[in-house]
Design a protein around this nucleic acid. Structure first.
Length: 576
DNA sequence: TTAGGGTTAG
C-alpha cells in the first residue's frame, strides 16, 4: 500500500512533463505496479496533458482491461486539449470494448464533434446519448446546443434548448453565443431579453458581441453600465468584448478608454484595439500601438494581430509600414504568412496603385504553390476596379467566375467593371447570365439605432411610419447639397445597381434613408449607420455635402470599415 | 472530473 501511494506521489510530482512521467512509469514497472489500472490512468491523463499523444496511446494499450474511468479520463483530456480526432477514436473504442458511457463521456465527445464541425458523427453521438438514457441530462443537453450551433444548425440547437425542462445558465449562454456566432445578432439579443436567470460574465460577452454585430449601442452601453454598477470583474474577455463593441459602434475613443482601464490584457485585447484603429482608417495609431506592443514587452503578436495591422496599413495607404510589418512577421516572430496575410499584401499594394507589384506578388506565390485562394484574385480585382484597369479587371473577374461560378459577387464585379466603361451590352449579358443561373446579389440594407430602437432601411423603403417625412427631408437635404456643389455620380455608375433598383435611382439608397432618418430624429449628436454591404460611391459623395449642410457628423460602418463624415470630408480620405 | 465567453483579409 505504501509503495502504491509512493508511486502515485511520484506521478503527481512529475505532472504533465514527458521526461518525468517516463521516469515514473519506469519506476512503476520496476516496483511491480506496471499493470495497475488506477496508477496508469493517472499517468495517462498527465501524458495527454503534455500533448504526448503517441506515448499516451502506448500507455493506454498497456492497460489490460480499460474501465469506464480510464475511458472517461482519456476522452475528457483529449477533448480539453483540442485533440478531437483522438477523442472520437477513444469514444469509439469505448463502445467496441462494451464499456458503458456516462454523461461525462458524452459532454467531452460532443465538444470534440463541435470542434470538428462533424455534423454526422455528432448526430450519431446524440442518438447514442438518447438511447443510453442521457437525453435529460442538463450537461449533455447544453453540450448539444453548442454542438448544433457550431455546425450552423440553429434549428436543431433551438430544438434541444426548447425541450430542456431545466434551462441552465450555460444552456442559455450556449444558445445566445451560437446565434451571435452564426450572424444572428438580433435573435441573440431577443433570447437574452427572454432570460429569467441573472446573466453572468459569459452571457455578457456574447451579448456584447451581438450588440457589436448589429450596432445596438443602446443595449451595449447598458451592459457596460451594469457591469460597472454591479462591480463585475472586467476580465480580459469581457474587456475585449467591450473594446469591440465601442469600436464597431463607431466610438474608437471609448474603445481606447476601456483598453486603458483593463487590469490584465493579452494578445486578443491588443489585437482588438489595433483592429479598431484600422477599421476607422487610423492606420498610424494602429501601427503605433503595434510598435508599443513590441517595445513594452506586451503580449507576443500572433497571426491575427498581423492581419489587423496589415489591413490597417492597407486602408490608410501606409505601404512602407505594411511591407516592414510583413517582413517582421517571419523575421522576428517566425510566423509563416497565411492566405489572409497574402490577401492583405495584395490589398495594400493594389489599393496604393502598385498593380504590377501586387500582380507579381500573386505570381510569386503561385510559383511556390501558395496561390490557391480566390481571395487573392478578389483583392486584386478590387484594386483593378479602383484604379480603373479595365482589361486586367475583366480578365481576373472571368477567371474568378471560372473558379467560383456560384459566387454572385464575382458576376457583380464583372458587370460593374463593364458598366464603368459604358459597355451596356456586356452589362446586360452578365446580368442575364445571373438571372438564368438564379444568382442574386446580396440585398443591401442599413440600420440605425435611435433611442434604443433599431430601424432598418432597404432601398426605396416605404415601410416606415414616417416615410413621407423622411423622403421630403431627404429631398430638401439633397437640393441644399446641390447648391454647394454636389453632383450625383455619373450615369455609368448607375448601371451598377440591380435592375429592380434602377427605378429608385441613387436617391433612395438604404444608407441615405437611414442617415436622413437619423438627422431628423436626433439633435446635435453624430448619426451612426451600419450597412451590410459596401457604401455606394454616390452616397459617399453625398454624405460629405450633407455633413456640411446639416452641420453634423455622420458615421457609416460598411462591410469593411468606417467612414466618418465631417465638415465636407471623410476620414477614409476617399481611399477605400 | 462534466456544458458556455473576446481578436483577423477580400
Amino acid at each position: 500500500m505504501a509503495a502504491n501511494s509512493a508511486a502515485y506521489e511520484a506521478i503527481v510530482r512529475a505532472g504533465p512533463r514527458l521526461n518525468q512521467l517516463q521516469q515514473a512509469h519506469a519506476h512503476l514497472i520496476v516496483t511491480g505496479y506496471g499493470q495497475s489500472r488506477s496508477l496508469l490512468t493517472k499517468l495517462i491523463t498527465f501524458a495527454c496533458s503534455a500533448r504526448a499523444i503517441a506515448y499516451t496511446h502506448l500507455l493506454f494499450l498497456s492497460v489490460p482491461l480499460p474501465d469506464e474511468f480510464l475511458f472517461n479520463s482519456i476522452i475528457k483530456s483529449t477533448s480539453k486539449l483540442r485533440l478531437p480526432l483522438d477523442c472520437v477514436a477513444y469514444y469509439r473504442r469505448m463502445i467496441s470494448s462494451n464499456v458503458s458511457p456516462t454523461n461525462y463521456t458524452f459532454t467531452s465527445v460532443i465538444k470534440s464533434c463541435a470542434d470538428l464541425s462533424a455534423s454526422r458523427i455528432g448526430k450519431g453521438v446524440h442518438c447514442h446519448a438518447l438511447v443510453s438514457g442521457f437525453g435529460l441530462d442538463t450537461y449533455v443537453q447544453a453540450a448539444f446546443v453548442t454542438f448544433y450551433s457550431k455546425c450552423g444548425d440553429l434549428r436543431a440547437a433551438r430544438k434541444v434548448f426548447d425541450r430542456m425542462p431545466e434551462k441552465s445558465i450555460v444552456a442559455w449562454n450556449s444558445l445566445i453565443s451560437g446565434l451571435e456566432q452564426n450572424g444572428l445578432g438580433e435573435e441573440a439579443i431577443r433570447v437574452f431579453n427572454q432570460m429569467r436567470e441573472s446573466p453572468d460574465s459569459a452571457t455578457f460577452v456574447s451579448v456584447l458581441s451581438a450588440c457589436a454585430q448589429t450596432g445596438a449601442i443602446g443595449l451595449g452601453s447598458w451592459v457596460h453600465e451594469y457591469i460597472v454598477r454591479e462591480g463585475l470583474d472586467l476580465n480580459v474577455k469581457l474587456g475585449t468584448a467591450l473594446i469591440n463593441l465601442y469600436s464597431r459602434c463607431g466610438d474608437v475613443g471609448k474603445a481606447r478608454e476601456v483598453f486603458e482601464k483593463m487590469k490584465e490584457t493579452n494578445v486578443a485585447a491588443w489585437t482588438a484595439m489595433i483592429s479598431a484603429y484600422g477599421t476607422h482608417g487610423d492606420g498610424k495609431e494602429a501601427v503605433d500601438l503595434f510598435n508599443k506592443m513590441e517595445e513594452d514587452y506586451g503580449p507576443v503578436p500572433n497571426d491575427v494581430t498581423f492581419v489587423a495591422v496589415l489591413s490597417a496599413c492597407a486602408h490608410a495607404g501606409l505601404v512602407e509600414e505594411g511591407r516592414s510589418v510583413y517582413k517582421r512577421m517571419s523575421d522576428s516572430y517566425g510566423l509563416v504568412p497565411k492566405v489572409e496575410h497574402h490577401v492583405c499584401m495584395v490589398d495594400l499594394l493594389g489599393r496604393a496603385g502598385f498593380l504590377d507589384e501586387a500582380y507579381g506578388f500573386i505570381h510569386h506565390l503561385d510559383g511556390i504553390g501558395k496561390a490557391t485562394s480566390p481571395a487573392l484574385w478578389t483583392a486584386m480585382l478590387g484594386a483593378c476596379k479602383m484604379h480603373r484597369n479595365y482589361d486586367l479587371g475583366v480578365e481576373i473577374a472571368k477567371r474568378l467566375i471560372d473558379l467560383e461560378p456560384e459566387n454572385p459577387g464575382h458576376h457583380v464585379m464583372l458587370s460593374n467593371i463593364y458598366a464603368l466603361r459604358g459597355k451596356t451590352d456586356e452589362v446586360s449579358h452578365v446580368r442575364d447570365g445571373m438571372m438564368r443561373n438564379n444568382l442574386r446579389k446580396q440585398v443591401g440594407y442599413s440600420v440605425i439605432e435611435v433611442e434604443n430602437r433599431t430601424y432598418m432601411f432597404s432601398i426605396g423603403d416605404e415601410s416606415h411610419q414616417e416615410t413621407g417625412e423622411i423622403y421630403r427631408y431627404l429631398e430638401t437635404l439633397m437640393s441644399r447639397c446641390k447648391e454647394i456643389g454636389y453632383a450625383p455620380v455619373s450615369e455609368a455608375v448607375m448601371h451598377q445597381v440591380e435592375e429592380e433598383e434602377k427605378e429608385y435611382a441613387l436617391r433612395y439608397h438604404s444608407e441615405k434613408l437611414a442617415v436622413a432618418f437619423g438627422l431628423l430624429k436626433t439633435v446635435d449628436v453624430a448619426v451612426t449607420v451600419v450597412k451590410n454591404l459596401r457604401i455606394c460611391e454616390d452616397c459617399h459623395s453625398a454624405f460629405k455635402y450633407i455633413s456640411v449642410v446639416s452641420n453634423r457628423q455622420i458615421i457609416v460602418r460598411d462591410k469593411l470599415r468606417f467612414h466618418h463624415f465631417q465638415n465636407g470630408s471623410c476620414s477614409c480620405m476617399d481611399y477605400w
